[in-house]
Design a protein around this nucleic acid. Sequence first.
DNA 1: GCAATAATTTAGTTTAGGCTAAAAATATAT
DNA 2: ATATATTTTTAGCCTAAACTAAATTATTGC
Lengths: 217, 217
Amino acid sequence: MTLSEENYLKAIYHLSRDAQDEVSTNAIAEAMETKASSVTDMIKKLSEKKLVKYKRYQGAKLTEEGRLYAVNVIRKHRLWEVFLVEKLNFSWDEVHEVAEQLEHIKSDKLIEELDVFLDNPSVDPHGDPIPDRHGNIQPSSKVLLATLRAGEQGVCVGVRNSSREFLQYLDKLGISLGDELKVLSREPFDNSMLIGTGDRKLSVSSLTANNLYVKKI
Amino acid sequence: MTLSEENYLKAIYHLSRDAQDEVSTNAIAEAMETKASSVTDMIKKLSEKKLVKYKRYQGAKLTEEGRLYAVNVIRKHRLWEVFLVEKLNFSWDEVHEVAEQLEHIKSDKLIEELDVFLDNPSVDPHGDPIPDRHGNIQPSSKVLLATLRAGEQGVCVGVRNSSREFLQYLDKLGISLGDELKVLSREPFDNSMLIGTGDRKLSVSSLTANNLYVKKI
DNA sequence: GCAATAATTTAGTTTAGGCTAAAAATATAT
DNA sequence: ATATATTTTTAGCCTAAACTAAATTATTGC
Ligand SMILES: [Mn+2]
Ligand SMILES: [Mn+2]
Ligand SMILES: [Mn+2]
Ligand SMILES: [Mn+2]
């Protein structure tokens, strides 16, 4: 499997929240920053290899084999992100680009030993779950901060958007995974919230609250 | 720079012990397990990029820029080998294949932090020197075991041949880097030697003695 | 139900990095 | 010194993965 094929599988996986539904050619093209015609060529190839189910004009859907392959690439991506943060002093907004390269390294022993070396982490630096060696993903009960009512509390456990801009903004706000947040009030005017964390109070915009996952406590 | 270009630079570097001499097209082809015609195409391309000096029918020679690039790839290769052995329980005969992939990952921060994480190692698991970030390589005074006379002693510091077969054979003999060896006698008949290490005595063939580096003590 | 629009595929190119076969240059051996 | 052998280059193809432009199919609005 080539680097490009692996990236397509990953993109299709991420685009189909339910393993059932077909992903459109255009959606894949946008995610991969490429053209629809290139996508058609590639999904035909992946279809030959039985990694994708494809009928002309009907989009693509991963086969079970394709899903397992995609999940394994994601496992590698996330383990490498943990490694970079925990061992090499990378910050959470610096890891993605390098992990995009490292996820394509081929060696079963490498990834199993890395997993052991990192003490079998269950989530990556952005709070995303790390699939196990068999492709199983731990279900989690996280909800968006935006869904909490005034008075409710939660622990910050992940981000929905992991762009550098958002991650660096959270750093600036002083919000990290593991922090306990309490919703002090919600502002109907612009859907922002006033939250308390530690001894600080801060106002977070609707957009921010819709990109931060918490686990209720 | 593509993976293939990097591999050509590395091959040319390894083939030219003295940075002066030209490396022949055929020699590169053999080292890269490719055809001479492909090599011609590539050295033309590297020549355009000023990484290689090339005149038709006269072989290739790295420019200073090309040498620095090659040495940096080798630095990455060897640091990753140290990582695999020291942190991930790889044995010295398993690391090369994976390091061949890892050496192409592009991130300056990654390699500098890896260097720090590993405590700035000076040699890789095969005793080969790790260039520093500026491309300088520590000169070393190692000699082949085969050059020692009866009665002389040395510490095992490296291998000339790092094929899996040879490394596994050394494991079977119980010889590791760091071991002290004493030449008890040399056998004129087949150039083998009788050596003592710890409380053991063993006979090593001429071929083995010509592929093991020691530092005299 | 049909025309307009949007999505998708096809056809034809491009570039990187291979290959083979043939031509050209260099090296070697009488 | 020249014929032969070896090395290297050139010419022409191939495949993977992109692209553009044109053709085709699906969807939507009336
Ligand atoms: Mn990532
Ligand atoms: Mn992540
Ligand atoms: Mn190696
Ligand atoms: Mn090595």
